[in-house]
Design a protein around this nucleic acid. Sequence first.
DNA 1: CGTGTAAGGAATTCTGACACG
DNA 2: CGTGTAAGGAATTCTGACACG
Lengths: 107, 107
Amino acid sequence: MESSLSYKDKKVISIGVVSELTGLSERQIRYYEERKLIFPERPKGGSRKYSFADVELLMDIANKIEDGVQTHEIKKEMSRKKKTEDEQSIRKKMIQGQINAQFGLRK
Amino acid sequence: MESSLSYKDKKVISIGVVSELTGLSERQIRYYEERKLIFPERPKGGSRKYSFADVELLMDIANKIEDGVQTHEIKKEMSRKKKTEDEQSIRKKMIQGQINAQFGLRK
DNA sequence: CGTGTAAGGAATTCTGACACG
DNA sequence: CGTGTAAGGAATTCTGACACG
């Protein structure tokens, strides 16, 4: 149940390629990081590394910006969504706990 | 049926990251390209870009080299495997053709 | 607020070559 | 054959700042 970090989540893409993939300028990409919307890895040397998931997220962000949504609002939306996901994750764990308690192996 | 080039096949990783991912030196990676075992993309600027599939292939190659197999042999193995895949692909297409001829929609 | 740009520096990558073997 | 390395150059990326608004 580790969902072993697939290729989609490996941070290996440099900003130049991300710029091509998303159509965003490097300036924009760095700015969204400054606003805490995106979190690239920073290996030795200081360069930024992004995942494909980051690229998708950046495209979502770009769409919202185009719709006039401010970075601050986008950040709030993101934390709302994350909260929902976390809660669902907890619910799933609790239900699984119940199942294990009722039907699981006992030593 | 286009199998739309997933993340695994997108050539977006630079040689430094590939080196870290595979444990191979950049020299080795470039040499295997010289021997036609691997084919990175070369965008403007001349830098090499690899996919996750390339990374996996490089690790296979590294294992064979360690076993004392020469690059020339590895290349032959690879073309043998590719040939088999191509033939299977053709067979599948032919069978599908038969199915379509017998049961497919006719105008 | 979000983005462009010029500035100077640091890190990355490239090629061709010499070396060992 | 496969790989290391020093060499010089070109392309990439980084940061902090000024600009517009």
